[in-house]
Design a binder for these strands. Structure first.
Lengths: 194, 194
DNA sequence: TTCGCTTATTTACACAGTGTCAATTTACAC
DNA sequence: GTGTAAATTGACACTGTGTAAATAAGCGAA
């Protein structure tokens, strides 16, 4: 997080990012973000209308920095349905830990803040698209043992952020174990075999 | 929710229960609870030290009213591991919708409130006991295709409240579909066959 | 240099909601 | 009646968000 030669806006985004990541689910205070960015609290409001919009901007910033689109390109290129499922799980499953802190905060805020909910839902709808595409590819191959719509819902749920949090944070699973078990579970659930 | 002939404490608990259930995840305001209970806001502090403790008391109240213990008795009585798993999933899976509103609120508060987190974790630890017992019964029967500890974690996650919320609230699955698919997924994941 | 524009700072304040306190009332038991 | 517990009333401190106004600093253009 080099803070030289950055616009004030970017320094604010980086400060918020760091704070959210260091305390997932807890909405950092505007004054703390300002202090971390080396800026007055009021300056935050010069760049973002309110705290929620600032946090939403951080998620967009993350997506831009990480290049989500490239990330999912491999998944789209896969030949068979099974390969596509595998690629999608790999891409998304390894993306979660990078965005977890900010995402969790937005998820918690969604409960009480409609703007946060809207941004969160859009993000999750995008993710669901990826699930639907993988499921459709499986169906095309005749590998799907259940209804396509329900299969998408199931995959969407198995790959959800709360599921990742439960297994890695609560159960203490290392990321590799999460990946292998989630992959096994998804294959079993959708195709009836691992 | 008959409100006659009840102690003030119980009227407060019922009012909080109703409010939390009607808006899951949103911590009702003390003034709203007081109004709903037909009592002054300050009266709440005569019976509960603070809002968190009030909400925790509501969950205990729910457990008492519903009789969780009886609920799990059938599960404990089952002969085979498969029967035990089935009974546990049935009992817990059908318990979730009854407690969801309050539980969700406590879960959200857990993020920022250590007392709420403590109460929530204890509750979830109890639930995990049930998972562990079912898994142990499966292992005794030689029906388990994976490590016992990991199997417990997996079942615990599949049966978690966020998973229920995702499938029934976000995906719109009716409770019956949730029950059948979760049962299938658990059997597949733990035993390798449905 | 000076003007004008943009950006940021400082200080102040309104507002919501929790939790605390003290004084007072209500109601019931003895 | 008197005493005691439960509840009410009204006030206040505290935290944190968002708004507002006045001021300062930097910078390009005339």
């Amino acid at each position: 997080m080099s803070s030289e030669n950055l616009t004030t806006r970017d320094r604010i985004l980086n400060a918020a990012w760091t704070l959210l990541e260091s305390n997932p689910g807890v909405a950092a205070r505007m004054s703390d973000i300002a202090k971390a960015a080396g800026v007055s609290r009021q300056a935050l409001y010069l760049h973002f209308p309110n705290r929620t919009e600032l946090f939403i901007a951080v998620t967009r910033h993350q997506d831009a920095v990480f290049g989500v689109q490239n990330m999912l390109a491999e998944s789209r290129a896969a030949e068979t349905g099974e390969a596509r499922l595998q690629a999608f799980i790999t891409a998304w499953g390894n993306y979660i830990p990078r965005i977890f802190g900010v995402a969790k905060t937005l998820l918690v805020m969604s409960e009480t803040d409609t703007d946060a909910a809207k941004a969160w839902n859009e993000r999750m709808a995008d993710m669901r698209e990826g699930c639907a595409a993988a499921v459709a590819a499986l169906a095309r191959d005749g590998a799907l043992v259940m209804d396509e719509r329900e299969a998408t819902d199931l995959l969407w749920t198995v790959l959800s952020i709360p599921t990742w949090e439960h297994l890695t944070r609560l159960c203490g699973w290392p990321q590799e174990l999460y990946m292998s078990e989630i992959t096994r579970l998804a294959r079993l659930g959708l195709c009836g075999r691992a």
